[in-house]
Design a protein around this nucleic acid. Structure first.
Length: 300
DNA sequence: CTCCAGGGATGAT
DNA sequence: ATCATCCATGGA
């Protein structure tokens, strides 16, 4: 099978795929296998080059030749990462995160699979979101083959709208099953026209997303950041909230969530979403495990 | 075993 | 407008 080489300076594939913004890529050989939309793809990155293998597609050659552009767009290789990082505030916390996450890019995910994944994300660890994503794909997605390995595309809204809440629960969704099913139905019917929402203002887009079952301010901001190119959107989850409270509001009483959101929107600037992702990944990867209590250890 | 996770919806102050 | 509670699940 052909290998396509794509110049990817200022890009770190592994850190980008493992930073908790996308959940379906799996390690394979020296790289990763997964899908971009309906295309099965293998990727590896020796140095500043992205080596890509595409799965067999029945599509016309014209579309096949456009696949490298699909990869470039998905990984946002056109983002001016140096400028973006230079726009971050200069403080010890941000400096450490920026240094730690060199090459991390905010990718452009397909809207529906990003929305669905983050509806499933509430009160779930990244490892478990990955498990849910895999179950949904295996049960309801389309099977593809790449490098002799099977991968599955994310099921369409229509496909999920046709299933039942109990079948979704069997994918480990718990109480989130009802919300995913209800939102899938709204998207499948066209009542929620995700693609047309690209034209909305930031505020209008957030309002539309928040009307969907299972979508609140945090999930809406994630979808805006990871699927709608709204680079200023600043999702505040438990990790980011800890960072803000401990590092930026240390020894201050009565800090409301609204105060955190207002501070973040002003302090981290027009690429705040990028700053947020760097802070999130750095915090998660350098978290100190709580030392086990030795109170009951009489010996050693 | 316990702890906690990329929260949202709902109802009570 | 803020606050408390419940919601299921399984990795660490």
């Amino acid at each position: 099978m052909d290998v396509t080489r794509i110049d990817a300076p200022g890009f770190d594939l592994a850190i980008t795929l493992n930073s908790g913004q996308v959940f379906h890529w799996e390690k394979f050989g020296n790289g990763f296998v997964g899908t971009i939309g309906e295309n099965a793809i293998y990727l590896e990155q020796p140095g500043d080059i992205l080596k890509v293998r595409f799965g067999e597609t029945p599509k016309p050659a014209r579309e096949t030749r456009a696949l490298p552009k699909t990869v470039t767009r998905y990984f946002a290789l056109d983002h001016p990462l140096e400028e973006i990082c230079a726009s971050f505030p200069r403080d010890p916390v941000m400096n450490a995160a920026r240094d730690f996450c060199r090459g991390l890019r905010i990718i452009r995910q397909p809207k529906w699979e990003c929305l669905a994944a983050f509806i499933c994300s509430s009160m779930k660890q990244v490892a478990h979101i990955r498990q849910i994503s895999r179950a949904l794909r295996q049960r309801f997605g389309e099977r593809k083959e790449i490098c002799g390995h099977e991968v599955f595309s994310f099921p369409s809204p229509g496909r999920l709208a046709r299933t039942s809440e109990s079948r979704l629960r069997k994918c480990g969704l718990g109480y989130r099953a009802k919300n995913l099913l209800a939102t899938a139905k709204r998207v499948a019917s066209g009542e929620a026209a995700l693609d047309s929402w690209s034209a909305l203002s930031e505020r209008q887009l957030r309002e539309q997303l928040c009307e969907l079952p299972g979508v609140g301010i945090k999930v809406a901001n994630c979808v805006m950041l990871f699927a709608y190119e709204r680079i200023a959107a600043f999702p505040i989850d438990v990790w980011i909230e800890r960072v803000l409270r401990e590092k930026y509001f240390a020894r201050k009483r009565k800090v409301t969530g609204q105060m955190l959101a207002d501070f973040a929107a002003n302090y981290f600037g027009p690429h705040g979403g990028y700053a947020q992702q760097y802070l999130f990944h750095h915090a998660r990867m350098t978290r100190k495990r709580k030392p086990p209590s030795r109170a009951l250890d009489q010996f050693d």
